[in-house]
Structures are given as structure tokens and as C-alpha cells.
Nucleic acid binder design. Sequence first.
RNA 1: GGAGAGAUGGCUGAGCGGUUGAAAGCACUGGUCUUGAAAACCAGCAUGGGUUUAUAGCCCAUCCAGGGUUCGAAUCCCUGUCUCUCCGCCA
Length: 424
Amino acid sequence: MLDPKLLRNDLQNCAERLARRGYTLDTALFEKLESQRKQLQVDTQQLQSERNAKSKAIGQAKAKGEDAAEFFAAVSALGDRLKANEEKLVQVQRELNDLLMSLPNLLHESVPDGRDEEDNLEIRRWGEPRKFDFEVRDHVDLGEATGLLDFETAVKITGSRFAVMSGGIARLHRALIQFMLDLHSQEHGYTETCVPYIVNADSLRGTGQLPKFEDDLFKLRHEHDLYLIPTAEVPVTNIVRDVIVDHNDMPRKFVCHTPCFRSEAGSYGKDTRGMIRQHQFEKVEMVQIVRPQDSYAALEELTAHAEEVLKRLQLPYRVVTLCAGDVGFSSAKTYDLEVWLPGQQAYREISSCSNFEDFQARRMKARWRNPDTAKPELVHTVNGSGLAIGRTLVAVLENYQNEDGSIMVPEVLKSYMDSRRSIQ
RNA sequence: GGAGAGAUGGCUGAGCGGUUGAAAGCACUGGUCUUGAAAACCAGCAUGGGUUUAUAGCCCAUCCAGGGUUCGAAUCCCUGUCUCUCCGCCA
């Protein structure tokens, strides 16, 4: 959520900054609701103040044993007006809050202009795509060749956009999870965390998936509003919801492996082949809770942590800064890591690292006590995938393939794979 | 699933329907004392919002959440959520 005070004091500027994203802020509506709110709130509080004063006088009169009858009528008369005012105020505040909750974050000034992913800015590349002296296969063909990746059976069990892995590929999949958790927890200073995969609506509002993106979620049939998590970001970041974090504990750094569930509504016909876009996939996520002044350094650090995974796996990748039109709803700035996929002859997203500044923190009331002011202030939240397991698996299969369809095991994974050298 | 008990400030924990935003303790901050520290003593110390140039004042709200009773609710009533104890079931 944006700072309501900023919107009130500098509405035009906010509207211009939101326009960079392609978002049109209805300034007239905001101003109308805001002026109504102001009038109603001032009036209501004035009436409350009168009521309090008179009720207090009754109490004092009674304490002295005096007759308080004369006050009674005066206070009763206030009652109806007060109630009517309060009801209107609540209504306007609700409308204002709905509007506020639907506004995306303001972008950091370093975010490049642009409309969509075509305009994203590549900032660096690492690794040379391997030259193959045979015709490369994509991961679907490789999975078929080894018989260890089965989409048809998954369709029978559940439906489209699921996969069944077995044998060496299932093992490789698990090895990737272990490797990433170990790297981030042992070398990058993150606390390994295990969280619920089902969350309530408050948590989803906190990180920004609700109220706008309910269609992207799997909602459970249950007496309460519960959802499968679309990313570990939701449960992990909400650890600090309604919490005042001790400044000595900052930054808090969490690494967490979870499955992720996404309905992929609106991506019909997109990436229908293979494991790139599934309703269920595993991900290792990094989340940092930091002081505001540290959040951009944290974003660089966390992005480097994600890159380190690709470097150790010897997978070529590039880093792009998302342009204004492509940055997600809650983010102020996002770097995407894109891994080289020989089967597609393209770089494909494998990690997304974002600084949300105080946008999520304001929704979550996640704060820290600033020792300089002694006041609770909003934290900044930063997170990123480190990495998406399914897509990393795809990248390993395609980059490490042999002519006979077997797969070499990356050096860093051998210790997680009983020293196996290849999968076939 | 059944039966009880409970939810109060950063934490622990008092609180006959009427100056209670809330005792006390801990923690924290400042001060006195001390060569320094500790101890002791003194003082301060909730959050959100409105108004405002203002982190000054003034005002409003907040004792799990939402309703209700009342001139007035932390305190009474209803509903929900969560926690704890016992029983049942269970990986």
C-alpha cells in the first residue's frame, strides 16, 4: 500500500509516477473520497468529543451525589447524529481503503521506461552457451528418452500442467533443492525456514496478492478463506506481520523451500509444452527484512545470491532490470535472472528478485524500532527466488545433455546424488 | 468432535460500568552518584488517526475481532477467532 499521506499531499506526482507503469490513477475519485473522509471524520470526532465531555460530567455529578438528570437529555440528543455520521464515515473509509489497496507500488527512479518485457534492460551476462555437435533436444524429449519425466500420467492423475518425475530426474530435482538450501543457509547467512503451504486471506493481502489477483490462486473449499501458496514469499514475509522487529535482529534473512501453486489463469496456450509453466512447482525462496536505508543494497546482495546458484551449476544466464511496464504490482524494482535453455535457444526467467520497499510492510504492519527516533517505523522487504526448482531442472537437463539422451550430473550436485555422474 | 479456562502496553501482570490510556514489575531512555561499570535513587517511556508548517498543542480511536446494552464499557450480553487443560480420534 502507498503512504496515504503522500497521496494526499502530492497526488499529481503520485499519479505521474503510477502512469510510468501504465496505471491510471483516478485522481478525481481520490480527491472526492478524501474530502468526504476529512469532513466526516472531523465532524464525527467533534461529536464524540462532546459526548465524552458530557458523559464525564454525569459521572462527576453522580460521584458528588448531585442530580445529573439535566445532562441526560443533552447527551441523548447527540446520539442519533453521531451514529449517522459514524456510519457514513465507515462507508467512505472503506471505499478509500479499497482504492488504496488496489494501487500498485511506486517505482524506483532507476527503473527504465518501457511497456512490456520487450523493453527490459539487460545489465549483465555470465557464461557461454555450450556449443553442441549434435542436435539438441528440449527437456520434454530428454524426459521421454530417459522415461523419467511423464506428463501423460500427470494428466490422468490431475490434469494439464503437472508432471510426474521418477528415478534419476526425481533425485536430481531433490538434489537441486538440497544444494540451494545448503548454499543459502551455510554460506549466505539465511535462516532455513519451513512454513505452512496454506495461508489465510490476511497473509495474501499483506504481500499484495489480494485483493487484485485472486484469480491466480487456488482457493480451498473450507469454512474459512484459505489458499494454497503461490510462492513462499507469502508465508515467509508474513512472519513479521504485526511484529516490531528488534533492530539488533536486522536484517532478518530467511531461506525457504516450498511447493508453489498457481492457477495460471490467463496464460492459456502459453508454455504449454513441458515443465516451464506448471500449476505446481518447487521453489527455494530468499526473503530479507531490512532497514529502509539498506534495502537497495540488500536487493543487490540477494540477486547475487541467486546468481551464485547458477554460477555453481555452470548455467549461462543474464540479468535484466524489468522496465516500468513489466514490474510486478507490489515491487518498486525487480531484477529477473534468465537462464539459457538450449532447447528453446533462449534465455528464460528462473528467478525474480524484488525490493518492495515499505509497500508490503505497510499492508502487514511490519515494523522495527528505529533507535534514532525510538519510534516504530515500517521495514523494507526484499525477496527473490534462489531458484525456481522446476525451471532449474529443465536448464540442467538441456544444458547437460549428451547425444544419447543421457544427462551429466553437474559437479556441485554429485555429493547430493550418491556421486552419480549421469542420469539415463 | 466433546467439556472447561483464558486473551490487557515491547514482555510479565492488576483492574467494584463513571477523570483508567489503563496499577505494579521487567525491559528501555535520560539524570544523580562513581575513576569507570554495577547497584541504589529520581524522572521519562503505548500505538494508530485527525487537525496543523510542526516529531508543539488540541482532539478521536484502540485492553483478540465484530456486533449489542448504556448518558457512559477493559469491565455486562451475543457471535467469531485464537491459546491452554482434560477426553475422543489420528500421521
